[in-house]
Amino acid sequence: MDNTSNMQALILSDIRRLAYRFLMTGRRGVRGIWSGFDRQLTATCRRFHPTAACLLGAAAAMLLMPACKPKPAASGDIWARVDGHPIFSSQVEKIYKSRAGSAGETGDSEEALSYKLNILNELINNRILMAHAAQSGITVSESEIDTKMGQLKSPYSQEQFEQKLKERGISEDDLRDEVRTTLTVNKLINRDVSARVSVSDADISAFYQKNKTSFDIPETEYHLAQIQVTPGSSNEVHNLKNDDAKTPEMAQRKIQALYAQLRAGQDFAAVAQNYSEDPNTAMSGGDMGFVPESSLAANPALGRVVKGLKPGQISGIMNTPSGYHIIKLLGIEQPGQHPLTDPKVQSQIRKTLQNEKEQLLKAAYIETLRDSAKVKNLLAEQIVKRAQ
């Protein structure tokens, strides 16, 4: 088996292991919410819902990426060349520092060099993908960039956003260049990878049979969402309106106004995204995930409220030590084995297999592009030379 096949097999093995772990433990995902009101509840909230995490994670990742425009450097600072175009050590070092932080290895230690070599390979791959996108005529519009920039800014106040840029040592124009690169590569991958992946009913059935115990729910679970308003100012508030009640009086007026909006028919998720002050759930429309019945039994106040609701209904205003809450019951899942005929089971499996296949095809796709590119990894050559 050649190196490419070996790498693909290893990637597929890792992906299958992660996918299986997701199915086994995803329903038990912990989301740190309701501190001060119900810490036990947070330790047992189950099933991770990725909407907010994807948005906030994309923002955080984008703000940690290195600037795309390298500063002029001497030839000795060039660590790789892709079709004659240099990749500088400063680019690798910037990513390394943002990821490793103060706890990371420094200097030329073996661990640090190994980490930097991996980062360099990422940059090489990105350079190859961007070149192929240009050859394929794939571009992004300024309006697309504006939309993504708005998403990146939305979790932060202007002051916080500028501080993030300052910490990275880049300008907003530099960030726009990074956004352009990310969107361009995504378009290329969507066209040449994602669009070619399919998951059959037979694939879903085989996965279900292999992981059947993962779909056995041991107890009743309640799918909850919340809107929270805290009685004091906080730098952790990241709603779309950057709205923060700074005093107990303001908090009381705010929660009453939000409750009136909901009673008038406003969408709960939209109100949560715009005004909820819980930094962990606001951007996902207040979605807290699934809470097992045993957790509600340990929290009588919440249990009484939740069990008094029908799916789709909202609670009244709850006053707790951490602030005010409005709860919505999104759904109830009964215990027992969820069958393959359950549309939610099929959807969950389909998404897992789709991601697995996409990651494998993406790895192989990048390898084929590397085969046709002229790549010289000078850092790797230096490491080998030192060992001789």
Rank of each mutant, 00 (worst) to 15 (best):
L55S: 11
L55V: 04
L55N: 10
L55E: 13
L55W: 11
L56D: 15
L56V: 13
L56E: 14
G57K: 05
G57T: 01
A58Y: 10
A59G: 08
A59T: 13
A59D: 07
A60R: 15
A60F: 09
A60I: 12
A61N: 07
M62K: 05
M62R: 05
M62L: 13
L63V: 06
L64N: 15
L64V: 03
L64Q: 11
L64M: 14
L64Y: 05
L64C: 12
M65Y: 05
M65I: 08
P66V: 07
P66K: 11
A67I: 01
C68V: 10
C68H: 08
K69A: 10
P70I: 00
P70K: 01
P70S: 00
K71C: 03
K71T: 02
K71N: 02
A74K: 15
A74P: 13
S75V: 14
G76P: 00
D77Q: 11
I78S: 08
I78Q: 06
W79P: 03
A80V: 12
A80N: 14
A80H: 12
V82W: 03
V82L: 02
D83P: 00
G84M: 02
H85D: 12
H85K: 15
H85A: 14
H85N: 12
P86A: 05
P86H: 11
I87M: 04
I87Y: 04
I87K: 03
I87R: 04
I87G: 00
I87W: 06
F88R: 12
S89F: 09
S89Q: 15
S90M: 03
Q91T: 09
V92F: 00
V92H: 00
V92G: 00
V92T: 00
E93Y: 02
K94V: 06
K94W: 09
I95Q: 14
Y96Q: 03
Y96F: 06
Y96W: 05
K97Y: 02
K97I: 08
S98G: 06
S98T: 11
S98I: 01
S98F: 06
R99P: 00
R99D: 08
A100N: 01
G101E: 13
G101K: 14
S102Q: 06
S102H: 07
S102R: 09
S102Y: 07
A103L: 14
A103G: 09
A103D: 07
E105T: 11
E105W: 13
T106E: 06
G107E: 03
G107S: 06
D108R: 12
D108A: 13
S109V: 07
E110V: 09
E111D: 10
A112M: 08
L113Q: 14
L113N: 14
Y115H: 15
Y115L: 06
Y115F: 15
K116T: 04
K116I: 02
L117C: 04
N118T: 14
N118D: 15
N118K: 13
I119H: 04
I119Q: 04
L120V: 07
L120A: 10
L120K: 01
N121A: 13
N121K: 14
N121G: 09
N121F: 05
E122W: 09
E122M: 05
E122N: 08
E122Y: 04
L123T: 01
L123Q: 06
I124L: 02
I124H: 01
N125I: 04
N126C: 01
R127E: 13
R127G: 00
R127A: 10
I128Y: 01
I128S: 06
I128A: 05
L129P: 10
L129I: 01
L129W: 01
